[in-house]
Design a protein around this nucleic acid. Structure first.
Length: 605
DNA sequence: GTTCTAGAAC
DNA sequence: GTTCTAGAAC
């Protein structure tokens, strides 16, 4: 029965985009716009006419998942319409989440348009308020329904009324192209005789040229930025430190060379001193971040940089940020697309150049899934699930940090008390101790506030970058009740030793390090590097220059053999050939969403 | 919800 | 002649 199509679709978890304990999001099989999703409850509620006031919390959850799927797909919430059909055709109540371009080959009939762009579409808020006030939602009278179906085809973005659906579709495409920066002169596209096949090849080609031009202008922004003193956190004669405009973690800075070097591939061994200097600046900016120890920072270059000027990333390893919106954002820091500083330095020192990956490899790495957590064995194909997971790491670290801070305050207090005891031998009562602890905490808090209010300190130390705001409207986890456990499709996690150990995974600072199976690599016996230690960042320790070869390398364990050993011929980068992380042997638990149907789904077949 | 198709509209 | 719409069938 075709009315059960949606129920059949959700029976197969492979169709789920995201889900919670109570609802599921799927893609509309016949999307009427560029983005079109359906949110369905797991509970068997056949239609919108069966909803009552009791369902308001469920409705809220559907709406939350609607926001999440928009976030997952990297789209803007304001571009979407979210609501129900007043006269739905298919069973199981479903919330439409649809982008307002309405450009789609599946938009074929007038009804497709009117069902979303007249009163036949009931926005989420309208239904919610109706249930709140009247405890039910009623079907439209037949005459009203047919009248709405006959509504003129008025554009949803301007006053234009079109004579028929093909004309409206042509008009809607104009809007979409205009929105994407298309000039009006090239809007009028050829409509092919075969239905719904619109030839926009010429248009997209011209679009591409224009977009390339715009991109080039943006690329130059970094060059301009280093001249603008307002953006600069630290400046020297050879480089500056600026805050990243779209930070991909809580702390994200760029050290930008003043010298006109396009990117990391243009570096030669002559630039080793420049790299030393850039590291010194990185050390300085890290040192100014009291909130986070230096071991939580990663320093390196993008192997496929967007900006038109050599810039070195200094980024905290939480990677929890509202700007972390796309899979390529994650992969650019957590695969071989990120070239750690020490690796770049070694390459330059031993080979005199940094060899890049091919364009094909770049593309592959950018889109690579599943996404592996950089702090544990968690993995997921969905960025949203990874972000939810990263959030738990962030919370743990914050709580750890707070506890540590409190302990430090107490120790400090005890030290002070000791001094006072020397002068005044009477032991303080436990009640007094408690009072003193409380007052110290208060004092510490006041001090923090004082520091926060100190504009000069703020300027010199740089702002606390991108501190996560749980209540931010764009935060997908805002107001998410814990019980819903929004984690989408959860995949089995590796539990046995068949999985490669973490040091060999992309996302690890050792991503560029050689792997055991690769023969002839001069670094293959190198022990794992420890995390960066705070006190090793002293600017006076210029351990990266050739003159420091006899010193203990900054990133090495104290007894490790020196990394800057005798040079060996190298015709390739010291990494294993094409061993993407997602080709690791699978564990016994296969992902549940691949192919097989559960027995209880047979009733839908 | 979709596809098919006859007949109206152009 | 082609394009477009709308009802029937699924």
């Amino acid at each position: 029965m075709w009315r059960l199509n949606l129920i059949n679709t959700i029976a197969d978890q492979a169709n789920w985009i995201i889900s919670s304990d109570v609802a599921i999001v799927i893609a509309d099989k016949y999307p009427k716009a560029q983005h079109h999703y359906l949110v369905l409850p797991k509970a068997e509620i056949s239609s919108v006419f069966n909803l009552t006031r009791e369902h308001l919390p469920l409705l809220e959850e559907l709406h939350l998942l609607a926001r999440n799927v928009v976030e997952v797909r990297g789209q803007q919430w304001n571009d979407f319409k979210v609501g129900f059909h007043a006269e739905p055709s298919l069973e199981r109540v479903h919330l439409h989440v649809i982008s307002q371009d309405f450009v789609s080959p599946c938009l074929k009939r007038k009804k497709h348009w009117t069902s979303f762009n007249t009163a036949l579409f009931v926005p989420y808020e309208e239904l919610r308020d109706k249930l709140q006030s009247e405890n039910s939602f009623q079907r439209l009278p037949p005459h009203a329904y047919h009248k709405l179906l006959d509504s003129p085809l008025q554009c949803n973005q301007c006053e234009r009324i079109c004579i028929n659906l093909p004309k409206l579709k042509e008009h809607l495409l104009e809007h979409l192209l205009n929105k994407n920066g298309q000039q009006k002169s090239v809007i009028y596209t050829k409509i092919e005789t075969s239905k719904d096949k619109i030839n926009i090849m010429d248009v997209t080609e011209k679009n591409k040229i224009k977009m390339d031009h715009i991109k080039q202008n943006i690329r130059n922004e970094l060059r301009k930025k280093i001249l603008d003193k307002n953006h600069i956190l630290i400046e020297s004669d050879r480089a500056v430190v600026v805050k990243a405009d779209y930070p991909k973690a809580q702390y994200h800075f760029r050290v930008v060379a003043k010298e006109d070097i396009e990117d990391v591939t243009k570096l030669t061994s002559d630039h080793l001193q420049l790299l030393d200097h850039m590291m010194e600046l990185a050390v300085q900016i890290i040192g100014k971040q009291d909130h986070l120890p230096s071991r939580n920072f990663r320093i390196g270059f993008k192997a496929d940089p967007f900006w038109d000027r050599l810039n070195m990333h200094v980024i905290s390893d939480d990677f929890y940020s509202l700007s972390m919106k796309r899979i390529k954002h994650w992969n650019s820091f957590n695969t071989e697309l990120f070239l750690p500083f020490q690796q770049a330095y070694m390459m330059l020192d031993s080979e005199g150049a940094i060899e890049t990956l091919s364009e094909v490899e770049f593309q592959k790495l950018k889109e690579q899934t599943p996404l592996h957590c950089n702090q544990c064995d968690f993995q997921s194909p969905l960025l949203l699930a990874l972000k939810a997971h990263l959030f738990t790491h962030w919370q743990d670290k914050e709580s750890e940090r707070r506890t540590k801070k409190q302990m430090e305050d107490i120790v400090k207090l005890l030290d002070e008390a000791k001094l006072e005891d020397t002068a005044k031998p009477e032991a303080a009562s436990s009640r007094e101790e408690h009072e003193i602890t409380a007052s110290t905490s208060q004092k510490s808090m006041d001090q923090n506030q004082a520091v926060g209010a100190d504009a000069n300190a703020y300027h010199q130390c740089g702002p606390l970058v991108n501190l996560m705001n749980l209540q931010h409207i764009n935060n997908p986890f805002r107001n998410t009740p814990a019980r819903f456990g929004i984690a989408a499709k959860t995949h089995p996690q590796p539990t046995n030793s068949m999985y490669a150990p973490r040091p060999h995974r992309a996302g690890n600072p050792l991503a560029y390090a050689p792997r055991p199976q690769q023969g002839g690599n001069p670094f293959r016996n190198m022990p794992p590097r420890p995390q960066l230690g705070g006190n090793r960042f002293g600017p006076h320790l210029n351990r990266f220059g050739p003159q420091s070869k006899d010193m203990m390398p900054m990133f090495a364990a104290p007894n490790q053999q020196p990394r800057f050993g005798p040079k060996q011929p190298q015709n390739h980068r010291p990494r294993a050939p094409n061993q993407p992380q997602n080709q690791r042997p699978r564990g016994p638990n296969q992902p549940q969403n691949q192919g097989t149907r559960a027995p209880n789904q047979s009733k839908f077949q």
